[in-house]
């Protein structure tokens, strides 16, 4: 049992990180904090990929002519792409937060919901009148 825990410590860490990130996204009402949580969540996946590509005793995947075992380079490449995607998402998310702050005057989810609900109600009344 302990053996399994220790030998797969990287996966445990990744899972903890993943859940932490997801929890932040769900539990925080602050829009920026949500994005931070999302980032943690995504980063855990990057770690998952990178840690699974490691071959114990392997070197960097650079051809030297000598027959060596080397780590799998493909996940790194994949994660490079995923990182770019993550950055884009973060940038876009923050841009949206800025715009939300400008038009609602707040970045707290509860306040935004209140503002939207009153807008809904006024629309409904205006529509039926």
């Amino acid at each position: 049992m302990i053996e399994a825990l220790i030998s797969h410590y990287n996966y445990w860490l990744i899972i903890i990180l993943m859940m932490l990130g997801l929890y932040v996204v769900v539990s925080r009402g602050n829009l920026v904090k949500k994005i931070v949580g999302l980032n943690i969540f995504q980063t855990s996946v990057f770690l998952l990929y990178i840690s699974l590509s490691k071959v114990s005793g392997g070197t960097a995947p650079i051809l030297t002519g000598k027959p060596e075992s080397f780590s799998n380079p493909l996940p790194h490449v994949l994660i490079l792409t995923a990182i770019v995607v993550g950055i884009s998402t973060t940038a876009l998310g923050l841009a949206l937060v800025v715009r939300i702050r400008e038009s609602y005057g707040t970045i707290e989810e509860d306040d935004i919901l209140i503002a939207e609900r009153s807008q809904d109600v006024s629309e409904r009344n205006g529509g039926s009148a």
């Binding site: 770019v84 940038a91 923050l94 800025v98 702050r101």
Partner: peptide, 20 residues
């Protein structure tokens, strides 16, 4: 592209008028 995009992103935030 990456360099230009990174600078644009920075500028998009930094260049905004002070709203806060």
């Amino acid at each position: 592209t990456v360099a230009a995009v990174m600078i644009s992103i920075f500028r998009a935030y930094a260049g905004r008028t002070k709203a806060i």
